[in-house]
Design a binder for these strands. Structure first.
Length: 271
DNA sequence: ATGATTTCCTGTAGGC
DNA sequence: TGCCTACAGGAAATCA
């Protein structure tokens, strides 16, 4: 599932492969997947890609004609740079034809939890999903994160998944970060001291950095623009390791459901 | 306001 | 071998 490191991996690949290229044609193949700006489809044409921005898990492709293309990969979304003559795979919801038409960006998303959108760049800050997005883990201060968790009695795990509290974390990296920080996923957030939050944030940044360096996690087959798989799934210490031995202490990793999400942790290392 | 639950959707894994 | 069911989850919506 694409979370911050996977989206960042795609953003960097887009920066290398599509910056300064011209949008020849924007072809939505499934109208209801284009969540916002369907009436602007024709105005995108001719714009050149001049910046690639990520906010949380949202990707913004800025064009030099004032328009911005939004991409959220949801659960099963993939953004691929394909050759024109490659067959269009099932569940492809948009084709963005580039330059002379030899190549095109395609977004596939079988489960359709993701979306795409077209918006004026100057309207972006007012677009609710963008506006609601919390500060990036690499920018947020321990004080801000602490304030966002202030007085919350719910378990820390589901709160870290809320994009308004901290932007970009998903199930994998929350579990991995809590393990590294030695914090039990069910710990009420309000019990965590500023010291705990500092340690947690340090581990969040560490795990995200390591994953970005590995090209993301390719559980459920995440791949970047050219089909390359990430390798961070090999480094997962708790996620998807239910019943296996903790790499720190040897205890069996457990998996419980919290807020409807599977939550993996070591009962001995995490308090 | 907070928090718990339901909804969307399809591919895959597991059981029999 | 093949069918069927359960499950995976990001985030918005709904309800208590």
């Amino acid at each position: 599932m694409p979370e911050l490191p996977e989206v960042e991996t795609v953003r960097r690949a887009l920066e290398k492969r599509t910056l300064h290229r011209r949008v020849k044609e924007y072809v939505p193949l499934r109208p209801d997947y284009l969540r916002i700006g369907i009436e602007h489809v024709k105005q995108v044409k001719g714009g050149r890609i001049n910046a690639l921005q990520r906010k949380g898990k949202i990707l913004a492709v800025h064009l030099d004609n004032g328009w911005t293309l939004l991409h959220h990969l949801g659960m099963s979304g993939r953004l691929l740079l394909a050759n024109r003559n490659e067959p269009v795979e099932l569940h492809t919801h948009v084709r963005i034809v580039l330059d002379n038409g030899a190549e095109e960006l395609r977004q596939r998303d079988p489960r359709r939890f993701g979306y795409i959108g077209i918006i004026l760049q100057k309207e972006l800050e007012k677009y609710p999903p963008w506006a609601r997005m919390g500060t990036d883990p690499f920018e947020i201060t321990p004080g801000e994160l602490c304030a966002n968790l202030q007085g919350r009695k719910r378990p820390i795990k589901p709160l870290l998944l809320e994009q308004s509290i901290i932007g970009g974390l998903g199930n994998i990296y929350v579990d991995e970060s809590l393990f590294r920080a030695g914090i039990h996923p069910t710990r009420p957030a309000c019990e965590l001291s500023l010291h705990d939050i500092k340690r947690l944030l340090r581990h969040i940044r560490q795990v995200l950095s390591e994953s970005i360096a590995a090209g993301g996690s390719s559980t459920s087959d995440f791949q970047t623009l050219d089909g390359t798989l990430g390798e961070f799934q090999m480094k997962h210490r708790v996620y998807g390791r239910e019943g296996k031995e903790c790499k720190k202490c040897g205890e069996a990793i457990e998996c419980i459901t919290l807020g409807g999400r599977s939550s993996h942790f070591c009962p001995a290392c995490q308090k």
